[in-house]
């Protein structure tokens, strides 16, 4: 039987999935993502079933560092939505735009990632996320796939471990996070040889579930 990841790969039009493609893959592995809509360069702006405020992002598998290039606008109110999209299209002509609900994260942002280590093979990572993730360097790895129990032990490797035991009244669910990490470790294995690198950053605690707010997946060019 083909895995969900293999089916997803089969439906992919090229080897550079955009953010929404990756979030669709995550959904197959029961990982929550914000409600969102991709608008092609010429699509009219018709937003339904989404709660304001919004996030507007440039949506292309070719643009890997969209924040650095001014490709992300947060907290966009409905009356500013059309203008914001127009500005984004002017900045990135001919490129799609992703409109999502702007969700509120409780506690700090995490990162979950994956890569292929030359010596040991495919590995999964979890740690302190957000734009300063490389400054914190508070991450830990395991080989994939890894069990939820092993993922739970990963969390105790971290400096931010107290976040999962009531630090400052936070109630971030460690067991659900461990399940999420285990599911992602399964997903990167299911992708097979084409898998190269994955960043889910940030992953946040939103309305009592772990949600992937941004995701980037790099595949090897030969699918």
């Amino acid at each position: 039987m083909r895995s969900a990841a293999q089916k997803w790969l089969h439906g992919l039009s090229n080897t550079k999935p955009d953010e929404l493609d990756v979030k669709e893959l995550l959904s197959c592995y029961d990982i929550a993502t914000p409600a969102g809509l991709r608008l092609g360069p010429n699509d009219s702006v018709a937003i339904r079933n989404m709660q304001p405020p919004y996030v507007v992002k440039v949506c292309s598998g070719d643009i890997l560092h969209k924040t650095d290039q001014g490709g992300v606008r947060l907290n966009v109110q409905p009356d500013r939505l059309e203008n914001t999209i127009t500005e984004m299209r002017a900045k990135f002509p001919g490129v799609s735009v992703l409109v999502e609900e702007h969700v509120h994260v409780s506690g700090s942002e995490l990162i979950v990632g994956g890569l292929v280590d030359q010596e040991f093979g495919t590995a999964v990572m979890v740690g302190a996320g957000g734009i300063l993730t490389e400054l914190y360097q508070d991450v830990t790895f395991r080989l994939a796939p890894c069990s939820a129990e092993e993922a739970r032990r990963m969390l105790s490797d971290l400096q931010i471990a107290p976040l999962f035991s009531g630090y400052r009244g936070l109630n971030l669910d460690a067991d659900l996070l461990a399940k999420t990490v285990a599911a992602i470790s399964r997903m990167v294995i299911d992708l097979g040889d084409v898998f190269s690198q994955l960043d889910i950053n940030p992953l946040g605690w939103v309305n009592n579930k772990w949600m992937a707010l941004d995701a980037k997946l790099v595949l090897n060019s030969k699918v």
């Binding site: 990162i111 890569l115 280590d117 993730t133 490389e134 991450v139 994955l198």
Partner: peptide, 13 residues
């Protein structure tokens, strides 16, 4: 090209 890759530095894995 990813945060994950740069954070790994090969040794954390």
């Amino acid at each position: 090209s990813s945060h994950t890759g740069r954070l790994a530095g090969s040794d954390r894995v």
